[in-house]
Design a protein around this nucleic acid. Sequence first.
DNA 1: GCGATCAGTT
DNA 2: CACAACTGATCGC
Length: 418
Amino acid sequence: MKERKMENGLVSVDKWSEKSQAYFLTHLHADHTQGLTSTWSKGPLFCSQLTAHLFPSRFPGFNLSLLTVLDTGLWHSMRLVSPSSGSQTTLQVMPIDAHHCPGAVMFLFRGDFGCLLFTGDFRWEAECESAKTAREMLVDALKDNAVDVLYLDNTYCNPAFEFPPRLVAARQVVDIIDSHPGFDIIIGIDSLGKEDLLVHISDMLETKIWVWPERLQTMHLLGFHDIFTTRTSLTSVRAVPRYSFSIDTLNQLNTMHPTIGIMPSGLPWMVKSTKGNSNKSQLSTGTETGTEKIVRGVERCHEYMYIVPYSDHSCFSEIKEFVELVRPTSMKGIVSSSSSYVEPFYYFGGLCGERPISQNEHENKERDERVIDIQTKSFCGIHNTIQSRSMKPVGVSRVTALRRVSRGSKLAENDSSD
DNA sequence: GCGATCAGTT
DNA sequence: CACAACTGATCGC
């Protein structure tokens, strides 16, 4: 079988350090934008509508003429120049909702190099109605394109990681709050993501939710105008930056007023405290003998702290379903900093390369295609930054230099040759 | 001041 | 212990 690959210097996804002709941003989390700055001038940047809407608040002063919105579910064509041969080539890309955080998309590419799918970070709640559109887009796109390489969000690519859909976890959060009348509630969140959880809480409890000022601005950009507030007097439910609150904080707060903390996280493990031991106990083990409310999967890791399995990344079974659907010829994990990292191929190798090849493969569909001319002229730098970097730190060794570089992907980097 | 990198935090 | 996502210190320019 012919090895598909895309040459370096053509496009980059969530990677900003090297010269490419087009740059693609899957979503606005910091670990996918490191290297991207307000003074960006390396080349055109493509992202979803919502990411573009949020973009100026994250990168004030950014030259917006470099920013182009790509609608989801459509093929967008762009003419690029092969850095090696200098000849023109056409590349097509389709963004598909990734259901990770607001604006997050996957990118499906096709061109001379074949067909590549970058999931970025993604959640694949196949049962849920919200994921239906994305699934249909993907299935439709894959009818005519067999994926040669799948670049996969393998954050929780281990059978040990199982958790329920977010709606289920959101109900668990409400149950916890309900069982603590009179308590103040603190929920740890990041700068983007988990808005649906907060909205659900707000709806169920009929309360506003406090957020910090920058987060309120983000909420407004996302179209939430009534639910969130920065006035503490209006609500006892507060969403705070995850990194700003700990068990020590909770202990402090509890000297003033009864308060519980809720950590929405796909990781079931403890948050550590500097003092005092933490009696980790499962609230529920799945039996239905409970006299008290059964909250499956929730961990009470401390007197005042709960961890709820609310994750914006796919759990193992969702990753598996996704790979079964895509059936790529080969695949690569985009997260390699984890010490428990295992190549997705270890689990899903049997799913690779068995998809029957469609007759229509690589035959372009005219109807939903739009053409974008990007300015290749100004971006065909002769600068070639030759810094060979292996993206694959295998095993558990702590290679500091590689700790944070593994999120982005240069297309076709370190492809195996044969 | 700005950007890149590293150390450390929940 | 772990992760993802983030802050803040430090260094070079």
